[in-house]
Each structure stands twice: as structure tokens, then as C-alpha cells.
Computed example of a mutant assay.
Amino acid sequence: MDLEARKYQFIQQLVKVDDESVLEKLELVLKANQGDWFDELSESEQIEIQIGLDQAEKGEFTSNEDVMKRFSK
């Protein structure tokens, strides 16, 4: 069965669903499959995150342990 036929069969089954909780679960699955949260960020936010990831890869960060020691005084 090709993809289009599977989609059509799914739609036919979906029309018959009368349980609200089943529909809610299906909606969650579809929303989770629609894209990455990162894509919803602004370009400047994406750039800042990438800068942070690059710094972490290079070891240019302060560990959580060091931060906690500093601010616990």
C-alpha cells in the first residue's frame, strides 16, 4: 500500500473516532511530528543558542558546580 492510500485509509478511520481522548492523543502525535521547537525561535535566538553550543564544545563554560559554589556564599 502506498503512502497516499495509507493516508486515505487513516482519514476514513479517523472520521469514525468518537472518543475525545483518542482524538487528543492523535493531535499530540501530529503536533510532535510537525517540527522542532528550535525552528519556532527567532533568528537571533537561534544564533545565540548556536553560539552557546559552540562555546560548550570548545570547553568555554563554567560548570554548574562552580556556579553553585560561587553563589552559595
Rank of each mutant, 00 (worst) to 15 (best):
E60Y: 04
A32R: 11
R70C: 10
K58M: 06
L14G: 04
D19A: 12
Y8L: 15
L53W: 00
E20A: 13
L14P: 02
F10M: 14
T62I: 13
A5V: 00
L28N: 15
K73H: 14
Q9G: 12
V17D: 01
D66P: 06
K7N: 06
I47V: 09
F71R: 15
Q55R: 15
K16L: 10
E57Y: 10
K69Q: 03
G52W: 00
S63A: 03
S42N: 05
Q13T: 03
L28T: 02
Y8T: 02
E43K: 15
D39Q: 11
G59P: 02
E27T: 13
Q55G: 07
L3P: 01
V17N: 04
E57L: 10
L41F: 07
Q34L: 15
Q12M: 07
S42V: 01
Q12L: 13
L26T: 09
E60I: 01
K16A: 10
T62D: 05
D66E: 13
I51K: 15
N64V: 06
V67D: 01
E43T: 12
K69P: 03
A32Y: 11
W37S: 13
F10P: 05
M1Y: 11
L23H: 07
D36K: 13
D19G: 05
Q12T: 01
G35D: 02
L28S: 15
K25G: 14
E4M: 11
Q50T: 11
D19C: 05
I51F: 07
F38S: 06
D2L: 10
R70Y: 14
K69C: 04
K58S: 09
N33P: 04
V15C: 00
D2P: 09
R6C: 08
G52A: 11
I51E: 09
I49R: 02
A56R: 13
K7W: 00
E24G: 14
L14R: 04
Q12N: 12
S63I: 00
K25E: 11
F71L: 15
Q50W: 06
M68T: 00
